[in-house]
Structure formats: structure tokens, C-alpha cells
């Protein structure tokens, strides 16, 4: 979709199109699913972000669309050689063999000091959601993502929390979930503003 059309959609939303342009754009919307999708996204973005007092509306869609188009230009379509599927299979088989013969640890080998490994769990049944983690209390082994069950190596001891982090996390844990989307987890979406990290702690990468 051209930049002109996107600008027309934007102008249409702002009520800045003339009668003829409006009619033409509506006819195009009738027959263009991509354009209807863009139209819906514009409304969603405006609804979610544009109505906050004192904030600048963000046009996320334009950036995303530009990136997609740039990517498409950078990688022109090529005819795939006939041997390509077999090459992929051969690479996959080699990697699997390597993993089995070289990377598989001995069962009786001790864990390296200072680390614990979360066991790989069986993939959950199609209609049977599983708990995220069996236990996380004293010496808890950590967690695994729900969407991608995989092994995770975590530090043996939890990092020492600064007082402000600890208080905020406990507030998120103890306060009753309920009245907002996702429970009462204010800590989910962000990290508390903080001064210079204490010497004994490790700061997360800057945002």
C-alpha cells in the first residue's frame, strides 16, 4: 500500500477528506482487505494511545509497514533450487546427531557448582494446561515458559534485591489481584525508577 493511501486513511480519520476523496476511499476499503486491516489498526492505536491526556499519539503502524516494505525490497524473491529441501534436512540431521553424541551430559555427572538445571518437562497435552512451575519457594528451581517448554539454567542463589525492588515485588505478590487486567501486577510492565545500582548487585541492561 502506498504512502499516499496511508495518508488518505489518516486524513479520513481526522475528517479532513473532501466528499469525492471520501467516497473513493470507502469504495477502496470495500474491496481491499489490507487497507481495511490498516484502517482497523489506526483506530486501535488511536483508541489506545491517542486519547491519553498530554501524550503524543504514536503512529506505530507507519514504522512497522515501512520496515516490512524495506525488508521485502532488500530480499528479492529467488527461484529455490531443487536440492534446497534436502540440504535443510541434511543440516537438521547433522545437528541432531551432534547433539546426541557430543552435547548430551552423562546422567551421573555432577552439576557444575553454582548452577542448577531445571528439568525438561514433557510437552503438555493439547487441551490440558499445566501449572507454570511446581514450586518456587525455598530453593525453588525456577520456571519454564509456558509457550516453549525448555531447559533453563538459573543462578544457584537468587540475586540480592535492593530494598526498593523487594518492597515493590512483595507489593505485587501480596496485594490482591482482581480489578485490573492481568491481576494487580504493577511490577509486570516496568522496573521502578532507581538510583545508581548498589555495588553488590547486578543491574539489568538499560532500557
Amino acid at each position: 500500500m502506498s504512502e499516499d493511501i496511508r495518508e488518505q486513511l489518516s486524513a479520513f480519520m481526522d475528517g479532513e477528506l473532501g466528499r469525492e476523496e471520501r467516497a473513493f476511499l470507502m469504495r477502496r476499503l470495500d474491496h481491499d482487505a489490507t487497507m481495511r486491516g490498516t484502517w482497523s489498526r489506526y483506530h486501535l492505536i488511536r483508541d489506545v494511545l491517542g486519547q491519553r491526556g498530554g501524550s503524543r499519539p504514536l503512529d506505530l503502524s507507519a514504522g512497522v509497514m515501512a520496515a516490512i516494505e524495506q525488508d521485502a525490497l532488500a530480499t528479492p524473491l529467488r527461484r529455490e533450487p531443487a536440492w534446497r529441501p534436502w540440504a535443510g534436512f541434511a543440516v537438521a540431521a547433522s545437528v541432531a546427531l551432534l547433539a546426541l553424541t557430543v552435547l548430551t551430559p552423562r546422567i551421573d555427572a555432577p552439576l557444575p557448582a553454582g548452577a542448577e538445571t531445571v528439568a525438561v518437562r514433557a510437552a503438555p497435552g493439547v487441551d490440558v494446561p499445566r501449572p507454570i512451575v511446581p514450586a518456587i519457594g525455598a530453593g525453588g528451581a525456577g520456571v519454564q515458559p509456558v509457550s516453549a517448554e525448555r531447559s533453563v539454567t538459573l543462578s544457584a542463589d537468587p540475586r540480592v534485591l535492593r530494598a526498593d525492588e523487594l518492597m515493590l515485588l512483595r507489593h505485587g505478590q501480596l496485594a490482591q489481584p482482581g480489578w485490573i487486567v492481568g491481576g494487580d501486577e504493577h511490577v509486570y510492565g516496568w522496573q521502578a525508577p532507581q538510583a545508581e545500582p548498589a555495588a553488590q548487585t547486578t543491574a539489568y541492561p538499560p532500557r
Binding site: 514450586a135 525453588g140 543462578s155 523487594l166 512483595r170 491481576g183
Partner: peptide, 24 residues
């Protein structure tokens, strides 16, 4: 983040974890 009945954990990509123990 992972929240269970026994605590809320913050997990960094390098494997570091922080645990705020507490009962919901």
C-alpha cells in the same frame, strides 16, 4: 516474572533470578 503462591520471581536473560518471597 513468575508469580506463584509462594513468591514472585524476576528472571533476567542471563539466568539471574530474584525472589521476593511472600504469600499472596
Amino acid at each position: 516474572w513468575v508469580r506463584t503462591a509462594s513468591g514472585l520471581s524476576l528472571l533476567a536473560p542471563d539466568g539471574q533470578r530474584s525472589l521476593a518471597a511472600g504469600v499472596a
